[in-house]
């Protein structure tokens, strides 16, 4: 029983005809070619499939695409503006907060939502904001310092 489902993806309207219980992750990767959304555990544990839906981060691997109807979804590709990386992305690279990069899209989206809320996050707030995103490479300390740096940069630039 497939259904027509429309939503806004990185600012553009898209339409798919799929089963509404198919996961948003699979629809993004298989039907829409958005492989920047990473498939890790596919059970809601690791956060690598994180996307922003209507301003909130969710794990797309356990999100039924039927519930995406009418919503606005942002993937990591949606953070670049006219080919230019978002400051959080740039600072992650500069700070060496990326190793294999598999967790990075999810982490940066979680950070984006945090910094949309506050540009002066406390240490505990930072840890909490990315606590749903596992990284197997970096040991988190460079991620943590990149987030602090991004907050300062965006605060002073404002």
């Amino acid at each position: 029983m497939e259904k027509n489902i429309k939503f806004i993806l990185n600012g553009k309207e898209v339409e798919v005809t799929v089963h509404p219980v198919k996961t948003l992750l699979k629809v993004l990767r298989e039907d829409l070619g958005h492989t920047e959304v990473k498939a890790g555990c596919e059970q809601g544990e690791c956060g690598s499939c994180t996307v922003i839906i209507d301003g909130k981060i969710v794990n797309s691997c356990i999100f039924p695409v039927g519930q995406a109807e009418g919503s606005s979804i942002i993937t990591i590709a949606g953070l670049c503006k006219e080919g230019e990386l978002h400051p959080i992305q740039k600072i992650f690279i500069e700070e060496g907060a990326v190793q294999c990069g598999f967790c990075t899209p999810g982490i940066i989206l979680a950070v984006k939502v945090l910094l949309d809320r506050t540009l002066s996050p406390g240490d505990e707030e930072i840890r909490e904001a990315v606590s749903g995103n596992l990284c197997r490479c970096t040991g988190y300390s460079k991620i943590f310092s990149a987030i602090k740096k991004a907050a300062v940069y965006m605060r002073t630039k404002k």
Partner: peptide, 9 residues
Amino acid sequence: LGTPQIANR
């Protein structure tokens, strides 16, 4: 309860 991603859902 859960991670931020889980608690949002």
